[in-house]
Design a binder for these strands. Structure first.
Lengths: 138, 138
DNA sequence: ATCAAGGTTGTAATGATTACAACTGTGCAG
DNA sequence: CTGCACAGTTGTAATCATTACAACCTTGAT
């Protein structure tokens, strides 16, 4: 499994990133919660276990993980930033009614454009919005 | 031409939206500036002409235009919200070096996923990031 | 045992966006 | 003509996520 903790820990070590207690907890949290949590959610939940945890640390850690390419930042809406363990080939759908974000499989490799011939592309994000099945059956 | 002022004015009238002076100015600005301006840029530039203009009005107007489907909101980065006259079938590329946002043509209709069979999709956004040709040559 | 470097913490500052209440202008009824 | 109602505009204050910063803590090497 690609998102196993052990594999990711090794990736951090390969990137010369120190595996502190807090960082591991954030990483574990993201592995166990694929529901695209916000910083607030991550902080609130982890705070129950680590009472000394600071929100700044959560921000710092997420940036470290993002820079290492382990975590994907979802900015589908300007008002909220969400985080996701990096998984290839999927887009994000946000329901305008209930607000839930769904993953969907999509082949990013198909996504290319002659306009970008000379561009170096490092990130591809696909965001859809609309109404999810649960909300549309009202 | 699809983004002509006259056509868009008619669309606003069709949506029962009053064509105030300020709203027309914002609309004109977006037609003339396809460089994905922020609220700050729109406000600063228009303020030169309309000295009484309020930033709140710019926010209000952009929301009205967005709801009417004439304007597309670009949230490629959580820190900045940008606005674009609605044009079909194009994605946005942001250069991580110079920060410029480029349009590129892409066939949104190709973008679909079996996972979304029962979803009602109303918006499709494609965001790429990387290095633009101007920044990568040296 | 000591020291340096990196990591963590809490508070203060920032900055974009929204809420809100007062003001303005325009069209219509009388 | 006059005044009223409504939609749009304005400016300030409030909100909220994020960042800056300085002090503190941990850990590992010498």
């Amino acid at each position: 499994m690609k998102t196993s903790l052990e594999v990711l820990k090794q990736e951090l070590l390969d990137n010369n990133i120190h595996l502190s207690h807090q960082r591991l907890k954030v990483l574990e949290y993201l592995i166990q919660n694929h529901n695209h949590p916000t910083v607030e959610q991550i902080f609130t939940d982890l705070h129950k276990d680590i009472s000394t945890l600071s929100k700044t640390t959560v921000y710092n850690t997420l940036r470290v993980l993002e820079d290492a390419g382990l975590v994907r930042v979802i900015t589908i809406e300007g008002t909220e930033t969400r985080y996701d363990i990096e998984v290839e080939n999927h887009g994000h759908f946000k329901c305008k009614s209930c607000g839930k974000i769904y993953d969907f499989e999509i082949d990013m490799n198909v996504l290319s454009s002659p306009d970008l011939e000379k561009f170096q592309i490092s990130d591809k994000d696909v965001y859809f919005k609309g109404i999810c099945p649960r909300c549309s059956q009202h």
